[in-house]
Design a protein around this nucleic acid. Structure first.
Lengths: 121, 121
DNA sequence: CCCTGTAGTATCCTTTTATATACTATACCA
DNA sequence: TGGTATAGTATATAAAAGGATACTACAGGG
C-alpha cells in the first residue's frame, strides 16, 4: 500500500527522532532500562545539561519516556521508556541496520568512482 | 539483537531523511516514477527552487536518486529513485504508519488528561 | 523584438538548533 | 566552614537550516 504524499505522516515520526541526541538517549534507555539524569549524562559523552534536559522534555511530551521525581535532596529523577515508546524500537533497529549498510554502500561507490577517475588520467 | 549505543548508525539513516521536504520528494518519486524538476516543484507546494535543488542534490549525493540531464533548450532534467534508494521504502512506510498511529495516540492521551482536569474543577 | 518556459545560481535575511558558561538549592561529609 | 553531588534554569552566542527575491541562458512563438 503506497503512502499518499498529501496525507504523509512520516514527518510526525521523524520529528520525534530528530535532534542531535535523541536516538542515543533512547538507545541507552532501551538497553539499560531506567536511568537517572546523571547516568544518562555520563552515558552520552559531550552532551550539555541543557541539551539533555531539552531532549528529555521533548520525548516526555510525546509520551515516549517517563519522568519520575523523587522528592529528596540531592534530587533524584529517573527516566525510562514507556510501553508506548517501545513501539519506536523496530524503527530504530531498521534505521540502524540501513545506516550500517549505507556506510558500506558509500565506501564501495567511492571505490568505483576512484577507479573510474584513474582511467581518465 | 540490541544496538550498541557506541556504534549506533541511526543518525546515518536519519541524516538522509531529514530536511523539511525530503520525505515528500521521495514519496513523489516512489509513487510517480521519473519526474522532471518542474513537475516535482508543482507536486510539492510551497517549496522554493533553492530548497528543491538543495534537497535533490543531497539525495543524489547519497545515491538515493538519479539525475539525468538532457542537453537541450529549454533545459530538461529528470529525477528518479535509484534501485538502492528503494531500500528506504520500508522505513518510510514504517514511519508513516507509526506517525499515523501517533496522532491517534496523542488525541487519546489529551482526552484522558482533559477528563482528569475536569474532575479537579 | 519581446514574452514564455526550464533548471538552475547568487545574495541576503530570518528562524531554528545547538553550545558554552554561569548560576541555583540543599543535604551530607570531613 | 567549605566542598561535593544532583537536577536542573538562565543567558548569551554560534552554527545550521530554511526562505525571499532577483538573476542567468537560450529556443520557440507571436
Amino acid at each position: 500500500m503506497k503512502i499518499e504524499p498529501e496525507s504523509c505522516r512520516v514527518d510526525d515520526a521523524l520529528g520525534i527522532l530528530v535532534g542531535k541526541w535523541k536516538p542515543l538517549i533512547l538507545l541507552h534507555l532501551l538497553k539499560n532500562g531506567t536511568q537517572r539524569f546523571s547516568e544518562l549524562k555520563r552515558s552520552v559523552p559531550g552532551i550539555t545539561q541543557k541539551m539533555l534536559t531539552n531532549q528529555l522534555r521533548d520525548l516526555e511530551e510525546e509520551d515516549i519516556i517517563e519522568r519520575k521525581v523523587y522528592p529528596q535532596v540531592p534530587p533524584k529523577v529517573e527516566y525510562s521508556i514507556t510501553e508506548y515508546g517501545r513501539s519506536l524500537e523496530p524503527i530504530l533497529n531498521a534505521m540502524h541496520e540501513w545506516g550500517t549498510n549505507h556506510i558500506i554502500h558509500k565506501r564501495e561507490k567511492m571505490k568505483k568512482e576512484n577507479v573510474g577517475n584513474e582511467r581518465k588520467l
